[in-house]
């Protein structure tokens, strides 16, 4: 067994610490606006009944001026899954709204991240095998440029050309308006159809980083002694590259994938807005426009939770891929 209990405990402990930091940041967010959050909520009485406001204030401990008590109540409510009530979509609970939006964002991200990772490392390795060739120069040059492109701009261009000019793809949303007219199979096809441009816009930008990082690591690995020795052993070139060089070269890419997740999530939120894709990003955007603060707060927590969980999973899987990291 390569993964020791000690290692697992350390990683889980760190994930919990990070989560605590995220929750704490979330708790302080409304207090950034200055003044008392209770008063702020009270000023929104036009959005709901005064009874609800009072109930909410009691729930989150806002009637008690002690900030530590409020902090404590905040945790208690979160532990019960209570993220508050949306002002805009009253009386919907924030949790419910997020629960409906999350699958779209997660789906979008999962597809985009997996494709960009696979294609990115493949291109990066091809470059590293022919350093200085025209193929390498073009891919590296393009990657440098794509790395600098804002996600939402790619999204707007794709929408403009792919959907408006060419009419090849829908102009937005995740589902056709008359969704009830389709059978399950037809619905799946149309959901995928709606997802093509959003995924593509994420893909184009996030692929560049994987290309550049993989290329660097692969070049490094190819100059290592163990690759020279693999050649000296008379191994076929394919085995030298894939079995001996690529395995070590890809380990940092794997870590990089996780570290980049936060960035891609940020990009996905913006992409969703451009495509009116009904995910968490769209929810945040609407909430920003409508000053629907509980939704913003809740959305951040959910996003942070997902990213932290993904990182934890990666940390736990990593020792299985790299035998050198076992007991630390």
């Amino acid at each position: 067994m390569r993964v020791s209990a000690r290692y697992v405990l350390k990683r889980v402990g760190f994930a919990l610490l990070t989560l605590w930091a995220a929750v704490t940041a979330d708790f302080f967010l409304p207090r950034l606006m200055g003044g008392n959050p209770a008063e702020y909520i009270a000023s929104q009485t036009s959005l709901g009944s005064p009874q609800l406001i009072a109930a909410l204030k009691a729930e989150f401990g806002l009637t008690n001026p002690n900030p530590f008590y409020q902090y404590w109540r905040y945790f208690v409510e979160l532990a019960h899954g209570n993220l508050g009530v949306s002002y805009e979509y009253y009386p919907s609970r924030v949790g419910t709204l997020l629960w409906h939006a999350l699958p779209f964002t997660v789906g979008l991200l999962l597809v985009a991240v997996v494709i960009s990772f696979v294609v990115g490392i493949f291109l990066g390795m091809l470059c590293a095998w022919r350093p200085g060739s025209w193929f390498d120069s073009i891919v590296v040059g393009t990657s440098f440029y794509l790395h600098a492109v804002p996600y939402f701009w790619t999204a707007m261009l794709l929408l403009l050309f792919g959907a408006f000019d060419l009419k090849a793809f829908p102009l937005g949303h995740a589902l056709p308006a008359e969704a009830q007219n389709f059978g399950p199979a037809g619905l799946v096809v149309r959901v995928l159809w709606h997802g093509v441009l959003p995924v593509l816009s994420l893909l184009l930008v996030s692929i560049a980083g994987h290309v550049l990082v993989t290329r660097n690591n692969m070049l490094q690995a190819l100059s290592e002694d163990y690759v020279v020795l693999a050649r000296a052993k008379g191994l076929p070139e394919g085995q030298v590259r894939w079995r001996y060089a690529a395995r070590t070269a890809l380990l940092p890419s794997f870590t990089g994938l996780m570290l980049s997740l936060g960035h891609v999530v940020g990009g996905a939120l913006l992409t969703e807005i451009v495509f009116s894709y009904p995910g968490v990003g769209q929810l945040i955007y609407q909430a920003i426009l409508n000053h629907d603060y509980p939704v913003i707060q809740g959305a951040f927590l959910i996003v942070a939770l997902c990213v932290i969980a993904a990182n934890l999973m990666a940390d736990l899987v990593y020792p299985l891929v790299d035998p050198r990291v076992s007991l630390t």
């Binding site: 002694d225 163990y226 020795l229 008379g234 191994l235 395995r247 790299d322």
Partner: peptide, 22 residues
């Protein structure tokens, strides 16, 4: 490739780097 190792084998200085870590 056919000659290497069958007729001509090599031992490098740093055994740590000469063996693939994974």
């Amino acid at each position: 490739r056919r000659i290497r190792w069958r007729r001509l084998a090599i031992v490098l200085q740093s055994s740590m780097n000469a063996l693939n870590p994974v």
